[in-house]
Design a protein around this nucleic acid. Structure first.
Lengths: 210, 210
DNA sequence: CTTTTTGAACTGACCGGTCAGTTCAAAAAC
DNA sequence: GTTTTTGAACTGACCGGTCAGTTCAAAAAG
């Protein structure tokens, strides 16, 4: 039993592969139409799998969704952490680490636009159904940004006036919305364009003060 | 005959009052549960109105939603424009105008959290149903920010390096996400706290460069 | 002033259709 | 031989939209 303990990886058994297919099918459908407008039959069909298989792999439509959330945010935080650590290893400043994380965030959204759409659409809902799951994964992701901000303040790279929590939220929002807008309404721009614009804001070079 | 010609306002006839009640009922329900999880029966019940009345006032559930979107974003853009104009009238800089608009945005989200949740949840969906409506109202709101940015660049207050469209998106995102996070996860903070944090970022005082 | 008429606004029971979730015997994969 | 998948059948609840009928304030008629 439990041959799928490794979770996602390609090495996983048949089971893991099926779950992956279901994730991919569900994420695009739910991003397009929302959770409750998406039917289990549709998910199964797009995944090329029988409906019974969905219920063999997940207890319910709800649980499929919650595990999808955990799965996706796990990928994001891993990516952010890597970006921060690599900057660290190369002796970069904390501002450079934040810059690298912005880029990592953009790359993630570029690769998984559907997941990002779905996450944004659900995060601030007053709904009790999966809010606990969402709060946990959100905190996991935000904590990575907060940590780097705190380090920046300690080292004197960042103003000690800043409110770490609120600034973290603002930075995340900046990246999230700029990236989604880029994907939805300004497809012609390059990732570098978007990254430059955000980098300018982060480094305080928009209003050319002082 | 035709006593309801005035449309919305308080002076409007019975019809306008009913529509207003339906907007208020729909906005909270849809923010909580999403569009398709919200039933017309629920909306009618919360508005204290019979189901038939919904269909007397709106062609469909869909149209009710679209008019709700237009209504809400109309309020927002009016508020943003006022903030910008008042700064102008007092001889304030364009950066101060942006700052005032950030505040106006926060006040709006504070007053209409449900509408904001719903807007964010729907804006970047790949759904074709009401995307045209959403694109129109979004453009209306973003244009106000872009205009002030452009003026700032012309007057030399803002760096000419900036990309107006992307920076506008980033600023909007910053406000949107910081405010929603504040409302959802950090209720104890004051509006001034949030405003200060965002103002710092706008004015480039986070990374104390130069 | 009183009676009658009008029609916009509202009501709520009802209908056709849909969906999540369950079950299970049999096949396929390992 | 065990695990996983299949796919069809079934259920019971729910939902968007319809429509025949009701209400009532104000206009028209007397």
């Amino acid at each position: 039993m439990d041959s799928s303990s490794t979770g996602t990886g390609t090495g996983g058994g048949r089971r893991a592969a099926t779950r992956q297919k279901l994730y991919e099918a569900a994420v695009t459908l739910i991003a397009e139409k929302g959770f409750s407008a998406t039917t289990v039959d549709e998910i199964a069909e797009r995944a090329g799998v029988a409906k019974g298989t969905v219920y063999y792999n997940f207890a319910s439509k709800n649980e499929l969704f919650e595990e999808l959330l955990r799965h996706g945010v796990g990928l994001l935080t891993a990516s952010l952490r890597t970006a921060a650590e690599e900057t660290e290893a190369h002796g970069g400043s904390r501002v450079e680490a934040l810059d690298a994380m912005i880029r990592a965030g953009l790359v993630f959204i570029y690769r998984y636009p559907a997941f990002t759409q779905l996450y944004v659409a659900e995060l601030w809902r007053t709904n009790r159904t999966w809010q606990s799951t969402l709060m946990v994964v959100r905190q996991e992701a935000v904590a990575v940004v907060e940590k780097v901000l705190r380090e920046g303040v300690e080292r004197g790279e960042l103003s000690s006036e800043i409110d770490v929590q609120l600034t973290a939220a603002a930075l995340v929002g900046m990246v999230l919305v700029a990236a989604l807008d880029w994907q939805s309404f300004q497809r012609e721009r390059s990732l570098d364009d978007v990254h430059s614009a955000l980098s300018l804001l982060l480094r305080g070079r928009v209003s050319g003060n002082r």
